[in-house]
Design a protein around this nucleic acid. Structure first.
Lengths: 338, 338
DNA sequence: GTGAAAGCGCTAACAT
DNA sequence: ATGTTAGCGCTTTCAC
C-alpha cells in the first residue's frame, strides 16, 4: 500500500510537499506538483482516510440510523427510498454513508451517541424513529449534528425534513368530500408518531371546513400495519355501516382496509372509497389501484443529506426543509378512473 | 472527547494499561481493570475507531457495492432485502457497513479498488454488478477480499453466494409442464447476466426432460424491465399464438407479461399462464397473484456478509454458498388457486 | 517554495 | 502486572 512517504522518497521531496501538492495547495511549484501527481498515479496511491480523519478530526462520513430495517419493511419502500436519496447526495459531494440499524437481534446496547462517536461520523440522519424512542432524547442532548426525518426538533445542531402532513391529510379528505362522501372514517398510525398527530389534525380541519362532524370513534389506530388496519376497518364498518370512505395514514394500512371492504362483500370504491398516504409501489399495483397522498421519499432522503452536510460545513441558513405532497387520484376513490 | 490518555491520567496509570484493560487482556490486575472501566464509563469514553483502525490496519467495516440503487429499483426489492440481510449479520458481529453506489449521477471515476482502499474497508460485497462491468475485472485482480452475489467467481480472495438458477428454472418449467402446458415461451433478462444464462439452461433442460421442443425464437430478452418484457410478450403472442405459458427470468418482467396478455384480450392463467422469478413483494399483490420461484434475498445478503467476515478472519472453509429456491404456486398459473 | 518536527488516539513490541 | 517507546499515515505549524 503506497503512502505519501513512498511518494516523497520517489520524488525526492519531503512528505509535507507531497501532502500539499496532492491537496491542491497553492504554495507549491507547479512542476513539483505535476511530478508528484504523476508518481502518485504511477504508484497507484490512495489516501488513507483513517489517518486523515484522525488528524483532521472528521471523517467525511455520515451515519444513517434507521429503525426497522427488517425483511418485512421492504413492503413499505419508504426506508429504502430515503436511503437511496441520502446515498445519492452523499455520493455527489464525496462523503460516505454508513448504515446503522437499531434492530439488530443482538440489540446492541450501545447508545446513539456512542455509535456515532466510535465511528467518528461527522453527523447523522435519523429515520423511522418514534417520538418516544430513547435515542431521540440523546440526539437533542448530544452535540452531534443531526437531521431528523418527520420529527420536528430544531436546535443548534439538530434539523429536520418533513412534509406538511396537516395539508396532506386535508388534500386527501377534501378529495373524498368532493366525491360526495359525508361519512369518512380514519385509520391512523400510532400515538407516538408525529405524522399521525398531524394527519389527524388535518383530518379534523378538513371535516370542519366541509361542515362535516368529527366522531372520535370513527378514528382507529392501525399501527401502520396492514393486518391491524384490516381488523380495525372490519370493526368500524360493522359497527358503523354509514361509513362510505376511509382516509388512512399509510398506504399499507389502506391496502388492509381494501381487503376488509372486500371481505365484507362490499366494493371499492363503489360502496366504500379508500385513500392512503405515502404512495408506495404497491399502491399502483393493487387492484383497484390505490389513491393516495404521495410523498417524495427519495427527495426526503436527498434533502436530509443535503441539509446535514450544509450544517456540517456551517452553511445552512435554516435547519428545516418542508417538502410538497401530491394527491394521486386512482381507482380506489374514483370510479372508472383510468 | 475523552481519550485513553485522559483515563490514564485520572486512574494514575499508563495509557498502555488502559488500552489493555479496556480490550480485555488478561495481564492486568482485576482491581486496576475495574477502576479503569469505571472511570471510562464515568468519563463517557468512546474508543476512536479511526485511530484504532490506523494502527491495526483494519477497520471492522465492510463495503456494500451496489449497482442501480435508484428510485426505481424500489420496485424490485431485491437490492433492499440483500442490504437488510447484510446489515443484519454485520450488526451481529459488530462490524459496520458502508454503502457504495455505482450510480451516482456524478459518476465518480474512482475505481472499485480505490473506493475500498480509501475507506479502508476490510472487504466488500458486490451486488447487481453485470458480468461485463469493468469493476468485476478489478475485483478479481485486486487483493481485497470480496464476495459476489450471483456471479460465480472464486479465488483466494473472492467468494460468492448464489442460488441454483438452473434448478430454479427447471422447477418453474416443470410446474408449467405438470399443468399441461406444451407451448412455453421464455422472457429472459439480458445476455451479460450470469443468472440469465443459467435460467435459460434450466429452461432448455426442463423442456428436454419433458420431451418438448426448444425454439430459439420463443425466447426473448426483456432486460429485466417490466415494459420491455411487455413489448416482447405482445410480439411473441402475436407471432406465435400457440404459446400458452411464459417463464420469466424476473417477477417484474412477469408482471409486464401479464399486462401484455390482458392487453391482447386474453386471461391469466386461463389462456396464458405466467410464472416469474424472485418473489418480489409485488408478486403477491398483483392480480392475479403471481406464481414464482422464490429466492431468499435477505438470506443471500446475510450469508454473503457471513462468508465475507469468515474469509476476513481466515475461517472460511469454502468460498461458495448456494441457497435454496422455492416454487410458489399462485393464481397466475393455477386456476382458482387460493 | 520547501522541509523538519509535532501530534491526532491508539496498539504493540520490549523492557522492567 | 505495569510503563516506555515507537509508529500507523496523515496534516499542520513554524522555520528557512
Amino acid at each position: 500500500m503506497t503512502t505519501i512517504k513512498d511518494i516523497a522518497k520517489a520524488a525526492g521531496v519531503s512528505i509535507t510537499t507531497v501532502s500539499r501538492a496532492l491537496n491542491g495547495y497553492s504554495d507549491v511549484n507547479e512542476k513539483t506538483r505535476q511530478k508528484i501527481i504523476d508518481i502518485a498515479k504511477q504508484l497507484n496511491y490512495s489516501p488513507n482516510t483513517l489517518a486523515r480523519g484522525l488528524v483532521m478530526n472528521k471523517s467525511k462520513t455520515i451515519g444513517l440510523l434507521v429503525s426497522g430495517l427488517t425483511r418485512e419493511s421492504a413492503k413499505d419502500n419508504f426506508t429504502f427510498e430515503v436511503l437511496a436519496g441520502v446515498n445519492q447526495y452523499v455520493g455527489e459531494v464525496d462523503y460516505d454513508m454508513v448504515l446503522f440499524s437499531t434492530t439488530s437481534t443482538k440489540q446492541r446496547e450501545k447508545t446513539y451517541t456512542q455509535l456515532c462517536r466510535e465511528r467518528r461520523v461527522d453527523g447523522a440522519i435519523l429515520q423511522g424513529i418514534r417520538v418516544d424512542d430513547p435515542y431521540l432524547q440523546e440526539v437533542v442532548e448530544s452535540d452531534i449534528p443531526c437531521v431528523l426525518i418527520d420529527i420536528p426538533i430544531e436546535s443548534e445542531t439538530v434539523g429536520y425534513v418533513t412534509t406538511d402532513n396537516v395539508l396532506g391529510a386535508k388534500k386527501a379528505v377534501r378529495h373524498l368530500v368532493e366525491l360526495g362522501h359525508k361519512c369518512i372514517a380514519m385509520i391512523n398510525g400510532y400515538e407516538y408518531a408525529f405524522v399521525s398527530e398531524q394527519r389527524l389534525k388535518g383530518f379534523k380541519e378538513a371535516l370542519f371546513e366541509a361542515d362535516l362532524p368529527f366522531y372520535e370513534h370513527w378514528v382507529a389506530n392501525g399501527a401502520f400495519k396492514e393486518e391491524q388496519a384490516e381488523q380495525e376497518a372490519i370493526r368500524l364498518l360493522t359497527e358503523y355501516p354509514d361509513i362510505t370512505a376511509f382516509f388512512c395514514a399509510s398506504d399499507l394500512m389502506a391496502l388492509g382496509v381494501m381487503k376488509a371492504v372486500k371481505q365484507l362483500g362490499k366494493r371499492v370504491p363503489d360502496d366504500v372509497a379508500v385513500i392512503g398516504y405515502d404512495d408506495i409501489i404497491l399502491a399502483s399495483y393493487a387492484t383497484p389501484t390505490l389513491s393516495t397522498i404521495a410523498q417524495n421519499k427519495f427527495a426526503m432522503g436527498y434533502e436530509a443529506a443535503k441539509l446535514l452536510i450544509q450544517m456540517l460545513e456551517g452553511k445552512a441558513q435554516s435547519h428545516v426543509r418542508i417538502l410538497e405532497t401530491e394527491l394521486k387520484m386512482r381507482e380506489s376513490t374514483v370510479k372508472n378512473h383510468k
